[in-house]
Simulated assay, not measured.
Amino acid sequence: ASGAGGMVGSQTLDLEAERKRPDEAGIIRLQAMKTGALIRFACEAGAIVAGAAPADRETLAEFGSAIGLAFQLADDLLDLTADAEQMGKATKKDAAAGKATLAALHGTDWAREQLHGLIDQAHALLEPYGEQADMLKAAATFVATRNS
């Protein structure tokens, strides 16, 4: 998650994207390798440490993938729509740098719709776990609804 197939690799792709704008598949790959890989592993790691069955490990890894992409979409939306005071940091950086994001490619309405779909997917993955998964469901909702 942190090496060539994760954060390090995504940084390389991110630098390349400054020279040659990626298509939608390239954006998705970059984002999945970026924060998405770390979030996916963090979700699966809890299952590993708990000695969970392989099917549960995979379910939690899928949950992590869904909220990883949701995190990135939310971040891209905030960069497009929030102001610097609200965020506590500069905004509109991606557009200024010419970075390709799914939100910029498809628009904010599309990105919000996808974001809600990802959170619905994440919650559905956790349904078999009942109340034990309430904290993870809350975390997924927070990822999508944060305002900074």
Rank of each mutant, 00 (worst) to 15 (best):
A103H: 08
A37E: 08
D14P: 01
A139N: 04
G107C: 02
D75R: 09
G107V: 02
A138N: 08
M7A: 14
E44N: 07
Q121V: 05
A55W: 04
G98A: 09
Q86R: 15
D120Q: 11
R112G: 12
A52S: 15
G117N: 13
Q11R: 00
E44D: 02
G26H: 09
L13Q: 06
K89M: 13
L105V: 03
T141D: 13
A53I: 03
A97Q: 14
G51F: 07
F71W: 11
Q86M: 13
L126F: 06
P22G: 08
A1C: 09
E113G: 13
A61W: 06
L38M: 15
A111D: 06
P22V: 04
I48K: 01
M135I: 11
A124Q: 14
A140Y: 12
G6E: 08
A100M: 14
E44W: 07
K34T: 06
D109A: 13
A104E: 15
F71A: 05
K93P: 04
A4T: 11
G46R: 14
A104T: 01
R19M: 12
E16G: 06
E16K: 06
I48E: 08
A74K: 15
A138T: 10
G88V: 01
A53F: 03
R21Q: 11
A4D: 10
K34C: 05
L115Y: 04
S10V: 04
R57V: 10
I28Q: 09
R19D: 11
T81G: 00
A96V: 03
T91Q: 00
D76S: 08
A140N: 10
D56N: 01
T12L: 14
E44L: 10
A103L: 07
L60T: 06
S65K: 13
L126E: 04
L60K: 06
R57T: 07
I39G: 01
